[in-house]
Amino acid sequence: MSILVDKHSRVLVQNITGREGSHQTRQMLAYGTNIVAGTGVGKGGRTVEGVPVFESVEEAVQATGANVSIVFVPAPFAPDAIVEAADSGVELIVCITEGIPVLDMVKVCAHVRAKGARLLGPNCPGVISPGLSKVGIMPADVFTPGPVGLVSRSGTLTYEVAAQLTALGVGQSSCVGIGGDPIVGMSFTDILGLFEADPATEVIAMIGEIGGTAEEEAAAFVGERVTKPVVAFVAGKTAPRGRRMGHAGAIVSVGQGTAEGKIAALREAGVLVGETLEKTTEAVAALVAGSRR
């Protein structure tokens, strides 16, 4: 078991004919992801890596039954691509694209919600269920199947934590990057709920960062609804106020979003918060070992 994607996911790559889209399609196919279709405007009828290319998401879904899409469309056109996928009945839309205007995402998120679809990202590395399916751009070799559910706002921190866990002999059920933008589709809370319900997940690792209130909301959710042990790390303790730390979302503003506030809220909810990544992954490994005893 896993969350969001598995062997049965039928994946569509939006802008499969682009440089990044075709390169990542090759990587995902090599991992065993079930890619059934791609789209490329003006490129319908071709194939990329043996995958049929369609003019529109609607045609691709009709012809192949795709139910998950991954978006490699450039920022000016990515909001449209997400809306197209939601309108065509795609259940899970993973948007890798970074640099989308934030007010576009205000409208897109409202639209996706109204259509009943799920959106991961934008500006995220995607999702991997090790050994089953990879719908994302992460380097596959650092992940290994196992009992830890990992969720993070950051791409490289996801890789770093997964690599450390794997080195400690601890595998993962699914690893999800929710994206570093101020407005994203699925939140920590959404993913925590899925991990709580997933029989394959025994321990949850959550990697947050400064900015916004997503970690505080996750803390409240853990306190009320999550019975599985949760270990967290929050990046950005040394970030100055009012400055954007790379991720458009990583900014401490108007009295909220500090690392201290997030750590306090998480600890209050019974979450173990690691001082460093190393201590965080060691705590996860100890919990996994304890639950196996």
Partner: peptide, 9 residues
């Protein structure tokens, strides 16, 4: 960005 912040910390 996340790894950069974690490195600073």
């Amino acid at each position: 960005a996340g790894l950069a912040m974690a490195t600073m910390d």
